[in-house]
Design a binder for these strands. Structure first.
Lengths: 208, 208
DNA sequence: GTCTATAACGTGATAGAC
DNA sequence: GTCTATCACGTTATAGAC
């Protein structure tokens, strides 16, 4: 454990705590003190790693983008099972994010967009576009492969799914975790997953 | 224009500005100064009408609840055309709220829930429950009356529609107003409105 | 009802010692 | 890399004059 390793570790710990706080309380809902105190360091130490709060926010979004990218890049390049992609995303939301009243960082950013530094706005826009592009491909390919059944444009459908997950994760804070379950149940229903229609469609390979 | 009338008027003006600010920037995203300045009064004058910011927030939600109630109570009591109710809600969101990057107050509250006074949390919970109850009835009755076509539980479907509108109105800040259009398009598609299937269904009076 | 004046506090941020 | 010390600022809120 030399000095350099310790430095990196502190930086990561700061990001970890900041991300949890941002998800639960929003970017404007926590202060440097909320990070420094549990880490047992002083505010000035955080400013060393992230000179301004905007720097911290951008770093948060950048790291989040890399995680998302690692989960989606394989499918974006070579395709695969679309249902697995969708269910992976749902699990990502349900298990990691929605537990303990958090939301996706993109959802957090979207709800605070007007009050956030410009650098974060830019970083967020790219992220939101990327995830919608990915979900669109999942739905498009999935419908073609007979895994999903829905009407309308895959881009529209992607947006509907993403926004409802986003909204449900926020509403779950008010109405409890069953909110997420209900939203996911209906998302599946509206994709024909598990329904009579789609089972039939799976067997025949085309819409009856 | 006597003293009493002027008093009421100021109070309303405060609420109007506060509501607009809350929708665009969130409840924690504006200060008393943002209200007093455009009104040409001082902060202390606002404290006279609303002693604490929590009082202002609860008043905002109470008034919002009354407006919503006036739009939904007739249908809740005597039923009616479900499609009109849905389209009215969509217009409410699209025209009044989403324009100029605002959101529904319930969406605002949900996204800030953890950082908001307890009194506002309580007021918001009731509001969110009421609107979901209404939307559930709209969907249930509408499906029964042959206006909508969808699988699954009306309560789940209501949640999906409400949360996607909520999420889309937030995402529209990042991705532009076309975001709302796309979400609404898919909501209609997933209800069978305007689709081949439902036109057929309308003609025959039963699902083919 | 609205004003002036002020209090009490938390915040992001910086300078310089170690 | 982390510390102490400090700054400048905006915020909600209150007291008391008019």
């Amino acid at each position: 454990m030399n000095a350099a390793a310790q430095a990196i570790d502190t930086r990561t710990q700061i990001l970890d705590i900041a991300e949890q706080l941002a998800r639960q309380r929003g970017f404007g809902g926590f202060s440097y003190r909320d990070i420094s105190q549990p880490l047992g360091i002083k505010n000035a130490a955080i400013h060393y790693h992230f000179p301004t709060k905007a720097d911290l926010g951008v770093a948060l979004l950048t790291r989040y983008g890399e995680i998302l990218s690692s989960l989606t890049s394989e499918f974006m390049k070579h395709g695969g099972c679309a249902l697995d992609q969708l269910e992976g995303f749902i699990a990502f939301y349900g298990d990691k994010i929605c537990s303990n009243q958090g939301t996706c960082l993109i959802a957090t950013l979207a709800s605070e967009f007007a009050t956030v530094p410009a650098a974060m706005q830019e970083a967020g826009k790219t992220l939101a576009m990327d995830i919608r592009t990915w979900m669109t491909k999942v739905l498009d390919v999935g419908r073609e492969q007979g895994e999903f059944n829905f009407d309308g444009d895959p881009g529209d459908k992607a947006l509907l799914i993403l926004t409802s997950m986003q909204g449900a994760s926020q509403l779950a804070r008010m109405a409890g975790p069953a909110t997420m379950d209900a939203a996911v149940r209906q998302i599946r229903a509206d994709l024909g997953i598990g329904s009579e229609l789609v089972r039939k469609w799976d067997r025949t390979g085309a819409i009856a």
